[in-house]
Every structure is written in C-alpha cells, then in structure tokens.
C-alpha cells in the first residue's frame, strides 16, 4: 500500500534540494534590502520601467505577434504525443513486434498531423 510517509522519505533528498534553492533564492532576493543604500527620499524616476530610456511601460493597447499563441497551442499537442511515447519506449522490449507496429502507426499519424500543420503555414514565424 502506498504510504505518503514512504514517498516523502524516498524523495527527502529532492526536498532538501528544493528547500536549499528556495533559501538561496530568498537570500539573494532580499539581501539588498539589508546591505544596499537606502535613499532618503524616493525619486520618481528611479522606479520607472527602463529608467532614463524611452517610455517603455506596457500599455493596455500593446500588441505582439499572434505566432506566440500558435506556438503555445502546437506545443500542447506535440508535447502530449511525446509523453505518450515514453511508456511505449519503456516497454518496447517486453512487447516486441506489437509495440513496434503500434509505435509506427502512432508516429505516422503524428507525421501526417505535422505535415498538415506545416502546409497550413502554422510553422512560419510572422
């Protein structure tokens, strides 16, 4: 039976790594408040985005390329298919020819989808 204590025990070193990462990151992120200079009066210009440069705040009207969304959507599709390949790859030797045929059909279907996406121009960066 799966016990939560066993899982925590098994992953304890990984948890130590995460805690060390958080600790070190937090030290880096907050040490300047202690060590750094504290200006007597807050200056307006200091806190501007890209101080002393061109105005570079992100306005509500700011637009950027539609391709970013497209890439994100394609990523979800193809990444899920990659994840499906992992279990088959693990058990390939156990299942032999059956798994081979199965994986071939899967990859051919994947390729058909890939060629469709390519021909529709979704992979062209605009």
């Amino acid at each position: 039976m799966l016990q939560i204590q066993d899982v925590i025990r098994a992953y304890l070193p990984a948890i130590v790594f995460v805690v060390l990462g958080i600790g070190l990151g937090a030290v880096f992120a907050s040490l300047n408040s202690v060590l750094g200079p504290k200006p007597k009066h807050a200056r307006r210009a200091t806190a501007e985005p890209y101080e002393s440069g061109l105005p570079s705040e992100v306005k509500k009207t700011m637009r950027f390329g539609i391709s970013f969304y497209l890439v994100a959507m394609l990523f979800i599709l193809f990444d899920i298919e990659t994840i499906f390949l992992f279990p088959v790859a693990m058990q390939l030797k156990a299942f032999g020819t059956f798994a081979l045929i199965e994986i071939s059909v899967f990859i051919v279907l994947l390729f058909v989808a890939f060629i469709y996406v390519w021909r529709r121009g979704a992979l062209e960066w605009k």
């Binding site: 070193p13 990984a14 790594f17 995460v18 060390l20 990462g21 958080i22 070190l24 990151g25 937090a26 880096f28 992120a29």
Partner: peptide, 18 residues
C-alpha cells in the same frame, strides 16, 4: 517580481537531485 528569480533558482537546484 520578487518570486520570479526564486523560482528560477529552485528549479535549477532541484534538477540536480537526480
């Protein structure tokens, strides 16, 4: 803004575990 660098640090450190 404060959390972002910490997240970067944690993920880099955690991958070391394996």
């Amino acid at each position: 803004f404060i959390a972002a660098p910490i997240i970067s640090m944690v993920t880099a450190a955690a991958t070391l575990a394996i």
